[in-house]
Design a protein around this nucleic acid. Sequence first.
DNA 1: GTGGTCTAGACCACC
DNA 2: GTGGTCTAGACCACA
Lengths: 123, 123, 123, 123
Amino acid sequence: MQFNKETPIYIQIKDVVYNAILSGEYCGGERIPSIRDMAVSLEVNPNTVTRTYAILQEEGVIENQRGLGYFAVENAKDVVLNQMKDEFLTVEVPLFFSKMERLGIPMEKITTLYSEPKKWRKT
Amino acid sequence: MQFNKETPIYIQIKDVVYNAILSGEYCGGERIPSIRDMAVSLEVNPNTVTRTYAILQEEGVIENQRGLGYFAVENAKDVVLNQMKDEFLTVEVPLFFSKMERLGIPMEKITTLYSEPKKWRKT
Amino acid sequence: MQFNKETPIYIQIKDVVYNAILSGEYCGGERIPSIRDMAVSLEVNPNTVTRTYAILQEEGVIENQRGLGYFAVENAKDVVLNQMKDEFLTVEVPLFFSKMERLGIPMEKITTLYSEPKKWRKT
Amino acid sequence: MQFNKETPIYIQIKDVVYNAILSGEYCGGERIPSIRDMAVSLEVNPNTVTRTYAILQEEGVIENQRGLGYFAVENAKDVVLNQMKDEFLTVEVPLFFSKMERLGIPMEKITTLYSEPKKWRKT
DNA sequence: GTGGTCTAGACCACC
DNA sequence: GTGGTCTAGACCACA
C-alpha cells in the first residue's frame, strides 16, 4: 500500500482499520488480521502495526484475547462513529469556519463546491 | 510567546508573519523586524527565525536587502491571501467534504452550525 | 574532504551528490548514505548535510522514507541532467557570450581553444 | 540603479566602473566621480563605493590624488582589458569547457546558439 | 547594524 | 537505526 509521506504511517494504518470497521468489513466481535498479517499485506514493519493496535485498544475499539489475536469490540462501529463525529463537530468544524472567515470565503462558496462533486471527489 | 508543541515553531512563526501582513501591520514594501529582534520578541533562537524568513522569501512574500534586512514585497497581502485561499479550496475543503461523507453528516448540519456562531466562535 | 572556502559547504555537498548520481554511484530508487554517515565521511556537521538533503528533496532528486533514510528518485539521473543542462544553456551560456563580446573575443578563438584540449583540460 | 541580489554590491559597482572605462566614458588620466557622487547616483551607501574604489586602486586601475579625487590611470583601458581577458581565457573558459563535457553538450550547440543572438542577448 | 553559514549537542517522533 | 527540530554560540561578509 501507498502511504502519504507527511502523516505517520501508524496513523494512516489506524484510518485503514477505522474505514474497515465503518464499511462493515470488520464487524463487532469478529477477529481482525494479526499484526503479522496486517504488516505483510501493508508492506510495513510489524512494529508499526503493533503501535496502531495498541492505540486502537486504548481507544476501546479493539480488544486482545491472549493467544487468539485481536477482535473488534461488540459495538465497534458505533464507538468509532461517535468518536469521530464528536471530534469532527467540536474541533475540526470550528477551525474550518474560522479559517473561512479569515480568508473571506462565504458559506455559499462552500455549498456550491459541495454540490459539484467532480470538483473535490477523487473517485 | 507561547507555541503549540505539536507543530514546528518555524511554521508557527510563519503564521505570525502571515497574520501581521494580512492585518496590515507589515505593509507592502515596508521593513519587517530583523531576525534578531524577532527572535528576542518571540523568545526563540535566531536560527529558527532565519528558517522561517528563508521560507517566506522562497514563497515570494518577503525580500532581503543586503545589510538592511527583510522587507515585505510590494503586494505581500495579495500574495499571502491568494496562496492561502488556493490551498484552502483545493486541499482542505475536499478533505473536509470526504470526512463529512464518511461520517454521514449532511451539508445542512454544517450550514446550520455556521448560522449559530456562538456554537463555534471563540470570541 | 576538503571544501572550497568561498562557496557554502552545503552547496558543495549538493554537487557531491549530483556527481554521484551522474556517475551512477547512486542509482534511481537506491538508498543514499544517511545524514549521519554522510556527515562523518565528509567530516562535516550533520546539520549541514541535513540542509543539503532538504534542498535536494525539494528539487525532486531524492525522497525520504520515514525511518529508513533518503533514496534517489527513480529517474534521478535524468532529473539532475536536465536541470543542469537547462541552467547552463539559459543562464551561463548567455553570460559567457556577453562577456566574450565585451572583451572583443571572437567565437573562433573559443573553438580553437576547444580543439586543443591540453590547453584547458586538467587530466 | 538596480542591483542583482546575489553578488555583492561593491562587486557590481566594480563592473560599472570597468564598463565605463571600456566604453571610453572614463578615459585614461581623467577624473572619475567622487565617492560621494557615485554613491548618490547609484543610491548606495558611500562606504560601499569606498570599498570598490579601494579595490580598483589596488588593481592599479585608478589612482587617488589627495584632495583632488580619483583618476583613471593613463592606460586604464588596456589594464582592464588585459586583466579581464587573461582571467577569462585561463579560468572561465576551461571551466566552461569542462562543464560542457560533463553535460554532454557538443561545441556545435554552442556555436549555433551564438549565431542566433536573439536567443541570448538581452538588448 | 544586517543576514548567512557552520558547529556542537540535545531531544523527539518514527520505523 | 532513521530524519526533524531546536538551542547556543561562533565567525564571516556586507552595508
